[in-house]
């Protein structure tokens, strides 16, 4: 059962990711990315990380993608040429990505050690965040605050 769902979600994720990259209409790119995020959320459910799934949807689909949609709607981006102009750029990009994947693969596949999460509960995560990772947690709060201030400063018209 979960096998079928795995394949469904995986195919959805890859197809929508390709659609993000290859679609000429920015709005469709955004929508494809939303679909992609939902299929990734589906994977999280399959892995039993229900809480992460919910947070993933709230953060990505609920906040980040709305921002993208917003920006794209506000600027009418029809006149921008969507792809790089020279043909060899595509080849070089493919080569670079291939090289990267090759390098990644040789490293990651040796050390990759998947673990079945089962029911990833909220409490241990919260406990880890507030004890072991307290300092990074506070720092990211500061990062957030400075981002808020920065965005307000940037958004203000002079």
């Amino acid at each position: 059962m979960s096998d079928i769902f795995f394949w469904v979600f995986s195919v959805m994720a890859v197809v929508s990711a390709l659609s993000v990259v290859l679609n000429r209409n920015p709005i469709y790119s955004v929508l494809s990315l939303i679909v992609c995020f939902f299929s990734i959320a589906g994977h999280y459910v399959l892995m039993g990380a229900l809480f992460l799934c919910a947070v993933h949807i709230v953060v990505y689909a609920g906040a980040i993608m709305v921002l993208f949609l917003f920006v794209i709607m506000l600027m009418n981006l029809k006149d921008v040429p969507e792809f790089v102009s020279k043909w060899w750029h595509f080849g070089a990009a493919g080569a670079a990505v291939a090289a990267m994947v090759f390098g990644l693969a040789t490293h990651l596949f040796q050390s990759y050690n998947p673990r079945v999460i089962g029911d990833m509960q909220l409490k241990p995560i919260a406990q880890a965040l507030f004890t072991t990772y307290a300092v990074p947690f506070e720092l990211s709060a500061i990062l957030f605050l400075s981002a808020v201030i920065g965005v307000v400063a940037l958004g203000k018209s002079e």
Binding site: A96, A99, T106
Partner: peptide, 16 residues
């Protein structure tokens, strides 16, 4: 962005 990607690729391949 090109330079970053190329450098990462070179480093990864070099490491392997």
């Amino acid at each position: 962005l090109w330079m970053i990607t190329a450098s990462v690729a070179v480093i990864l391949i070099g490491l392997s």
